[in-house]
Each structure stands twice: as structure tokens, then as C-alpha cells.
Design a protein around this nucleic acid. Structure first.
Lengths: 239, 239
DNA sequence: TTAGTAAGTTGCACAGTACCACTATTAATT
DNA sequence: AATTAATAGTGGTACTGTGCAACTTACTAA
């Protein structure tokens, strides 16, 4: 016998992703173009990647997010954090819907984007300097969600090591500093930055150098790629 | 004509609340005892208040959370913040389910608890000193959720004005400091605390004093009851 | 009047960062 | 070979917010 069923309908449930990287010296977010299938809302518009939970395949929310992340990027375990939920009667023309949004940070090197099912195409969209988004309408309420993701990212970057997850496995301190500056749209003071990073035991030095057209730079890697480091203070320039 | 329907089922969707207050010099969380209705899981067990979204009445997630908050406490606009979502195939015996959890802080004075529909009773459960919860099994995965709520609360209290929302409209600085100490289970240094609170412009002094058995204390109220203040550093005792 | 208690203040120490100036190491240029 | 440009990396002082301890203030109770 079936267990007692509720006599009111439940909302649609989706999982969406705000996937960020640093590319061409700028922050970028992954967008997908929605398919032009009959009955699907917002055909050919750009949106955050995501979709319905598959209650057969996904054992929990994170598993669902990881599945979608892998479908688009091929990556299995980049930085992944729950951002929040957006749910209302109006946000999806098909009815009351809730989306669980995760945000992910990953290096752009060696990523091959894949469109996958139900999507016309995929691209990295550059986040405009200082703007609250990409200067482009997104499907559903994804514009609002992207703004919230950027706010969370910028907020946490002030006191965590999150930008390290936007870089490949080996990086120089200058590259790490540049990642901070790109996310914050603001210069960071070099000396204080290096002291902070080194005192926190965030990185391990490698016996290799990055050779460029000027003085070689020491390469480092993260001590722990599983969790970010929290610094005791935020950056706080005096001007 | 109906729009295209998905051929896989969607999960059950609920909204749950972690409602905290300070009572009898201790932190407390609001729990409800589940009804003994046939077919309802976990009869007579204690749980966080919450339930299914009513897609007829609730226009969005926050509205749903506020409705449930009002049903239990009668309060319309206490501090309310999204905590996160928990969703999996196993967490509810009725099937794949997702809950959106909000956490709320409110003063205990003048609150009359109401059991409401589907609940046998309501009570404030004292959070045991230093423990990660209430030392009691809760229905579903609500024990895990409560731990996460406590972690979020304790984490944010280190650098925000959240404890002010646990107090009534008028309070002394000593009372506010005590609220911090109760949440953190640790003494806070008086002078630094007062400097921090006053420099942040968190409170306005009132032309009234709290008279007790010793020196009267100045009463203050929050400048802004809508949003918390963020301090530039966390507390960090040297010992 | 005195003792007790909690409110509120003052002064110094300290940690982490801001800011600025400096040195170091390489490639490219002459 | 010496010079220049460019970026890597270091050192020194100042400042800000907090930690800590000792102090003063204002009231009650006896």
C-alpha cells in the first residue's frame, strides 16, 4: 500500500551551477544556451547550467551537482560549495519551482566544454569589470542568481584562499595575487599579500621556477586542495 | 494544452526552520513534536518546525518560511537568513526529498509558542554548553541540520552583530556581551567588546537606564534591525 | 558609613596589515 | 660586456583593532 500522499502538488526541483574560472586575465562564468525544443521555456536564451534532479541517478544534491559539473567540464572534483536556493511561483513558466544553486571554482587550463543534452552551446562569459554581472539578460532569474554568486565570491575572497582554486595546480605568488585582483577588481598590496599567504601555511614551495622574460618566480602548490583557508582579517586598504 | 511534462518524478519539497533565542541564560532552539497521524513518518519524535511548501499560498521560499515562523511564534519579521538545503533519496521514508532550511534569531520575551497543525507540542530546547546540539535524537536528518545551523551561528557571531537579534528591542551593553558569550560558550573581553560595538555604530544610546542592584546601565537599541553589522576582524583571544 | 557589585574607562601590548622603498635575478638591447 | 627593462622578492615603519589588566564610577544593602 502506498504511503499517505499529500493532496497538494510539490514544486519542480532543479540544481543549477555558477561555475567560475579566470581566463584571459578576467573572471568568467560558464553559460549554456538553451535548446529550442518545443515546450521548453526560454529557447536559445543563455542560462546557468543545470537542470532537474534525476531521482533515479542522483543520491543527493551534491551528487546531482557533481554530475552536471562533470557533464559540462569533465572535471570530477573542483571546488564546490552550496550557494543557496531560489524558489517562487513565478520564476519558471511551467509552475512553482525551486532551484538549488552550487558554485564552483576551477582552473581554465585543459577544460574542454561540452554542450551535452538539451543545450545548444556552451561558452565562458567574461564578467565585466566592476559590473554586477555580464551585461546580458539570462533566462529565468539566473541574472539575480549570478549576482548573488558574485557577491558571495567577492565577499569570501576578502578573507579566504578561494582564488587559489581558480588556478592550475602549480602557480606563482604573483599569479595568485593577480587572481585576487581580478576577482576584487582592485589592486592588492604585494608585501602584505605575500606575508599573509605564507604565514597562513596555505602553500608549499616547489623545487621549480616559472621562467618568463624577467626574473624567474618560485612555483607553489596548495597544501590542501579540499578546503579553503580562512585568514584572520579581511583586506582593508586605508584610502 | 498542458506544457510538456517531465517524465521523471520530482522530489518532495519542504521548508524547515532553525529558530534560536536566548532563554534562562542559555541558547535555545525551537522544536516541535510530530503528530501521531497514520502514514506520517517519525510520529511523536521531536523535529525542527517546518513542512511542505503550499504552492497555493506561498509565493516564494521566504514567504513560506515567514508563514511557518508566524504560525509557531506569532512574530512577523524577526531576523531570517537562508541556511542551506539538504536533499537526498534517503532522508525521508516517503521518498527523495529536499528541504530548504532557514535560520531565525529572535528575543524570547513575549513569545507565546503555538503548536499549530500536525504537531503534538512545541518547546524551547536548551543547547548544551559546548555540545554540538541538544543531546537528543531528532527526526529525519534534523540533528545534522541543527549542527550546521549552530556552526553557522557560532561562526558568524565571531564577526557580526547577530546576537543583538536574540535580545529585545532595548538592551544594555552587558546584556549584549552576555549574548555573545552564551552563543560562543566563552568569555569576551569587556573593553574591546565595547569599543568594537560603539565604533561600528551598531547601536544608539537611549535616554534611559536599566536599574538593578548595582550601578545603572545605559540602555541601547539597534540602529538597524533589518541587517547585521560586519566587523573587520574576528575575536581572537591570545591564550 | 562602609562593603559589595556591576558599569564603564584608561593605558599599554600585540598581531596583522598598509604603504613605501629597496634589492635581486633574469632577458633583451646596445 | 655593460645597460636597461621588467618582474620577483624583501625590509622597515606606521596604523588599526583587539587583548589584557588595572582602575574609577554609581548604585544597593547593611
Amino acid at each position: 500500500m502506498e504511503p499517505k500522499t499529500r493532496n497538494f502538488k510539490t514544486p519542480l526541483v532543479t540544481v543549477d551551477l555558477a561555475i567560475f574560472t579566470v581566463r584571459d586575465d578576467a573572471l568568467a562564468v560558464l553559460l549554456v544556451q538553451r535548446a529550442a525544443t518545443a515546450g521548453d521555456p526560454h529557447p536559445l536564451e543563455w542560462a546557468l547550467p543545470g537542470g532537474f534532479i534525476d531521482i533515479e541517478r542522483d543520491s543527493d544534491l551534491v551528487a546531482c551537482a557533481r554530475r552536471k559539473l562533470k557533464e559540462k567540464t569533465g572535471l570530477v572534483s573542483p571546488y564546490l560549495e552550496q550557494l543557496g536556493s531560489w524558489g517562487s511561483r513565478k520564476r519558471d513558466p511551467r509552475g512553482w519551482s525551486v532551484t538549488q544553486v552550487y558554485f564552483s571554482l576551477l582552473p581554465s587550463e585543459g577544460i574542454e566544454l561540452r554542450a551535452g543534452a538539451n543545450t545548444a552551446s556552451v561558452r565562458w562569459a567574461r564578467i565585466e569589470e566592476g559590473a554586477c554581472g555580464i551585461g546580458e539578460r539570462l533566462a529565468f532569474d539566473h541574472g539575480v542568481i549570478l549576482e548573488a554568486a558574485l557577491e558571495r565570491l567577492r565577499g569570501k575572497v576578502e578573507y579566504t584562499s578561494l582564488p587559489a582554486f581558480l588556478l592550475p595546480g602549480e602557480f606563482t605568488l604573483s599569479e595568485l595575487q593577480r587572481a585576487y585582483e581580478i576577482v576584487l577588481s582592485r589592486p592588492i598590496e604585494k608585501s602584505a599579500f605575500r606575508t599573509r599567504v605564507k604565514d597562513a601555511g596555505l602553500v608549499d614551495p616547489l623545487p621549480r621556477m616559472r621562467r618568463t622574460t624577467s626574473r624567474p618566480a618560485r612555483l607553489y602548490r596548495l597544501k590542501d586542495r579540499a578546503a579553503p583557508v580562512y585568514f584572520p582579517r579581511t583586506f582593508s586598504p586605508r584610502s
